[in-house]
């Protein structure tokens, strides 16, 4: 009797809690990513396409200060050759110095250089974008995520869901649209279905056919968004492939070791009389 009353009270509390929890979430679809799961690897061609989209579209406004040209040729990345990375770097003019005479000078980029930023400093960027600052994209794929409820969140632990960042970026890049009736936008605001508050300062960056793909991949907004999200994930987590590969080896080792340890324990304790 007392137990039943307790259970009912607990269930009522749980019910009202989950009702409030359900109110908040914006739904974001999960995308199939090649780098998901225990054996995930980046799709080289996709990273190269993503790099193209980043370079031609994103990098006109966003910096990516933590990624260097040498990273493009690093194992587990987009798979550029050393020579290709050199060529990419050489296309940029880098401010260097001071030299022996104390003067700053311009030189061609080298593989050890980091991706140059589109604006010389934060103030310049803000002046260009009506006071708002386009975030640096180096770790953006880990700095964004999707909200999951408690049960889904616990399930994610077992399904190894770690792709909230790219899922959000994809949903954001493809989430532009007209504001619903009654919502007013200022001239610098744009309606986005997944952005928190829905009013984003970034204009829709992608249009069909904007970036030329040479490998026959459809040149659509959704494809661009998918490729650049994957590229940003690599930029944020360049050692993901090594991590998962070593992780599998460690797991096999530990599981075998656990088996041996278990039978050792069993044998030692068996003679205890």
């Amino acid at each position: 009797m007392r137990k039943t009353a307790l259970l009912i009270a607990a269930a009522a509390l749980l019910g009202s809690v989950s009702a409030q929890a359900a109110e908040q979430a914006i739904h974001i679809d999960r995308q199939p990513w090649s780098f998901a799961g225990p054996f995930g690897t980046y799709d080289r061609a996709q990273l190269q396409r993503g790099y193209r989209v980043y370079k031609e579209v994103c990098s006109t406004c966003h910096s990516m200060k933590l990624v260097a040209f040498r990273n493009l040729a690093q194992p587990g990345g987009p798979g550029f050759t050393e020579a290709q990375a050199k060529t990419v770097a050489a296309e940029y003019k880098i401010n260097d110095g001071p030299n022996d005479k104390g003067e700053m000078f311009e030189r061609a980029g080298r593989v050890t250089d980091y991706f140059p930023s589109p604006d010389p400093n934060e103030q310049a960027a803000r002046a260009r974008f009506n006071g708002s600052l386009p975030p640096d994209l180096s770790v953006i794929a880990k700095a964004r995520g999707v909200e999951s409820g408690v049960l889904r969140g616990i399930l994610n632990m077992f399904t190894q869901y770690q792709e909230g960042g790219p899922d959000y970026i994809y949903a954001y890049l493809t989430g532009y649209g007209k504001p619903p009736a009654g919502e007013e936008l200022t001239p610098t605001q744009h309606w986005n279905s997944v952005f928190p508050g829905h009013k984003t300062q970034m204009p829709p960056p992608l249009t069909d056919g904007q970036v030329e793909y040479t490998d026959g991949t459809p040149a659509t907004v959704s494809q661009y968004a998918r490729d650049v999200s994957a590229f940003l994930m690599w930029a944020a987590e360049p050692h993901l492939e090594a991590r998962k590969r070593i992780g599998f080896q460690v797991m096999i080792f530990l599981i075998v070791l656990a088996g041996l340890a278990y039978y050792t324990k069993k044998k030692v304790w068996a003679d205890l009389h």
Binding site: N156, Q162, R243, G247, A258, A261, T264, W269
Partner: peptide, 24 residues
Amino acid sequence: VKDNFALICFMILFAWFVFYIPNY
């Protein structure tokens, strides 16, 4: 031997987080 076995099992859980869901 008993602590050893338990520790290795715990390390499997630990490795799951480190290698597969490090930002979870």
